[in-house]
């Protein structure tokens, strides 16, 4: 593709179009959800409990069947690709819970994730550990002994180990202290500087909005509003309906 075409044509990294999906046949949770994630950006998804945020992430990760609509990564259709093959397409998923293997050591967790890409695994492991000093110190400990924040870092490190273009993160701050939340979110921001794109679900709306580029608001399995995060934060109506402290900020 010539460079001018790249400039003038919108060429998003991930394009979700009219996706309908659910856990059991004929009972959709998502009703035609659309979303775009640009390269090198943090795209934020927020919405009340049960809005379908995790469901959307799982649909993109190939973990639940999509009955209508299309998911494309760099124009390539990945709608019905198995989760284990998505890693090869450059999509990594960090689940909301249970995103590390507790009975394995930190190093074994990383090695498990590193094995798919091949190459010099040791060098890549060292590079990853250099990013996360807290993990580096505890390499030989069982992952089950890590603190909440360290666990999220390990989960993120494991996602990075698969050399992804896009990381799907489902509430990485769940259950973390405000300090740990800030650390995890800051780290996410730094990743985008290295060219990784992030699709982020968060309950900590105010913190997440500050670092996101674009934001989607979901409710009852449908798109509500979306726009640049900075604009949405400043929008009075949106602020009152969707970002009012009580409904969203509580967690």
């Amino acid at each position: 593709m010539p460079i001018w075409a790249h400039r003038s044509m919108p060429d998003p990294l991930l394009q979700v179009t009219g996706v309908t999906a659910g856990y059991v046949p004929d009972l959709p949770i998502l009703h035609g959800v659309s979303l775009t994630a640009e390269r090198g950006q943090i795209t934020l998804i927020i919405g009340p409990n049960g809005a379908g945020k995790s469901t959307l992430i799982k649909a993109i990760a190939g973990l639940i069947p999509v009955s209508a609509g299309r998911i494309a990564l760099e124009q390539q259709d990945v709608t019905h690709i198995r989760p284990d093959q998505l890693a090869a397409h450059g999509i990594a998923y960090v689940p909301q819970n249970d995103n590390i293997f507790r009975s394995l050591t930190i190093r074994q967790n990383l090695d498990l994730a590193l094995r798919r890409a091949g190459g010099d695994a040791t060098a890549r492991r060292d590079r990853l550990l250099a990013q996360f000093p807290a993990l580096d110190e505890k390499q030989r400990d069982k992952a089950g002994t890590l603190s909440g924040g360290q666990r999220q870092f390990l989960a993120i490190a494991m996602a990075l180990a698969t050399a992804p273009r896009l990381i799907l993160m489902d509430e990485p701050s769940a259950g973390l202290s405000p300090k740990a939340t800030a650390e995890v979110l800051d780290h996410a921001r730094r990743l985008t500087a290295d060219g990784v794109s992030i699709l982020l679900v968060e309950q900590n709306v105010s913190q997440a909005m500050k670092l996101a580029d674009h934001c989607y608001i979901l409710a009852e399995g449908r798109n509500q509003v979306d726009g640049p995060a900075a604009e949405l934060m400043g929008d009075k109506v949106v602020g009152e309906i969707y970002l009012g402290g009580r409904r969203m900020g509580a967690a």
């Binding site: 293997f101 009975s103 394995l104 698969t162």
Partner: peptide, 18 residues
């Protein structure tokens, strides 16, 4: 270790390309 990982959490293992 992969066996153990799958037993612990199949979805997470699949997302890592297993």
């Amino acid at each position: 270790r992969l066996l153990r990982a799958i037993r612990e959490d199949e979805e997470a293992a699949a997302s890592l390309g297993k």
